[in-house]
Structures are given as structure tokens and as C-alpha cells.
Design a protein around this nucleic acid. Structure first.
Lengths: 119, 119
DNA sequence: GCGTGATACCTTGTTATGCTAGATAGCATG
DNA sequence: CATGCTATCTAGCATAACAAGGTATCACGC
């Protein structure tokens, strides 16, 4: 595999899970509809996510009971499905933040092992 | 799904990719043999990884040309396969660190969105 | 009315990775 | 020769990101 191709693929794998956390953290901030969230993630987090990926995540979160949605009609286009975080979702988000912090810490430790050993 | 079960499963997903980065960063520090690495990750990074997971990673990294290995016989037990990072692996590790930093930054931004918006 | 484009939602199939559970094998001790 | 510790490797499963495509609404030009 070419180096660029490897990195691209590895990035997809490394994003697993983190996207769910990012979506839930965003919904904890305010309501979003799907299409809006795609643009939000690009502008705010520098993440280019395809809408197919995002809708799959929202569906999973809904099946888990972490988000709910309400329809809102518009006069300038198709209706929008606004998502918001449930109480269960907020509680799950707390747990996910802890797990993520553990992973991030493990990566930091491994990355800085050499420097810290020299101290 | 129970909350604990969800978190456990989500953690597995979120670890994807990060383990490869952690292993390569560890090998950049010094040589390891597989079994040793399992204990190293537990002690140093607080990560409990099964050996099956680790050997699969090492095999993939070897197929990519990121690590090489040498056998070393012992007198107190079975032979050990010592892994070390190749030049290609070092270069890939640099790229992975950049990608990981992007992901970590995106998560941090999403997590802190509320606070920062209030500033 | 009819095509084009923008908005907005959803589905399907592929692929890669971590996890569980097992298999194999050397050495030491009783 | 059975048990336990070390050490490596394999097979099958579940899950999430991604690409590609489909459906439907509204506005605009012709």
C-alpha cells in the first residue's frame, strides 16, 4: 500500500468512535439537523464527513435512546429533522468522555515515552 | 443495550487505530517482543490488550514494512521475536501523529464548544 | 410543464480493525 | 508425565467509516 493510501485508511479507522463522541458533544451544545451538522463539523472541527456517515451515526444514537428528533417544516425546501440529546445521552456522553480521555492519555504517554524517560 | 455494555463496545471502536499508533510509538523508543509489549502497554499506558490483538497488529505492520523482527533464543523458555521500527515505519509514524493530532483537536473543540462560545 | 440545481434525508455494500477463543510449543517443577 | 508459565499465532465475529446511489422538496429559467 502506498504511504498516502495507508494514512488515509488509517485515519478512517482512527476516527471510529470519535465521530460519535463529537456528534453527541455538538448536540449537547444545541439542536442540529443532519445537513447542518455536516457543515458545522467542517467549519468548527475541520472534519469532512459524508452525510451518509452522519445519518448512520444519528440512527444508531437514536436506537440507543441517546438522541431524539422533531420534524420542522420549511418554506424554502425539504423538511428538517432536528436532533437533540436526551438525558440518557448526556449521561452516556459523560462516560464516553472518560473513556476517550483514557485513550488520549495512553497515546500521549506512548508518544512522549522517550522524552520522559530521559528526564 | 445496557449503558455499561455500550461504553465497553464504544471503547473498543474508539481504540481502533490508536493501538497501532501506540505500538509504533513504543517501538520507536526501543525493541520489544510481543509478550513484553502487552505488559509494557499495561504498565506504562494503562491499556489491557489481549495478545491476539497485538500479534495481529504486529503482523499488519510487518506486511506494511513498518517493522522488522529478529529471533532471539532464550535458555529459560521459548524463543522471542523482537520487533523494531524501520525507516519507513518512522516516517509513517510521523504522518500518523499528525492525523491523530487532528482528530484529538476536533474532539477537544467539540467538547469545549460551549465554554468557548461563551467567551 | 420540464429540466437543472440546491437542499435534505436515507440505504446498501465494502473494508478494516479490535475482540474472543482457541491452538501450538518450549522449558521448569513436582 | 502432568501442570503451569512463557511465548507465538490463527479463525471467526461484530462494528463503524466510507463510497455510491436513491428519494423528495422547492426555486429558477425557458
Amino acid at each position: 500500500m502506498a504511504q498516502d493510501e495507508f494514512l488515509s485508511n488509517w485515519g478512517s479507522q482512527a476516527r471510529k468512535g470519535s465521530l460519535e463522541l463529537i456528534v453527541m458533544a455538538s448536540l449537547a451544545e444545541k439542536e442540529f439537523y443532519g445537513y447542518e451538522l455536516v457543515e458545522h463539523l467542517k467549519a468548527r472541527c475541520g472534519l469532512t464527513v459524508s452525510d451518509g456517515t452522519l445519518y448512520a451515526i444519528l440512527l444508531r444514537l437514536k436506537n440507543e435512546g441517546f438522541v431524539r428528533h422533531r420534524w420542522e417544516h420549511t418554506e424554502t425546501g425539504p423538511a428538517r429533522k432536528y436532533y437533540s440529546l436526551t438525558k440518557t445521552g448526556q449521561s452516556a456522553l459523560e462516560g464516553m468522555r472518560v473513556v476517550w480521555a483514557d485513550i488520549a492519555r495512553a497515546v500521549e504517554r506512548a508518544k512522549n515515552a522517550k522524552e520522559r524517560r530521559d528526564v
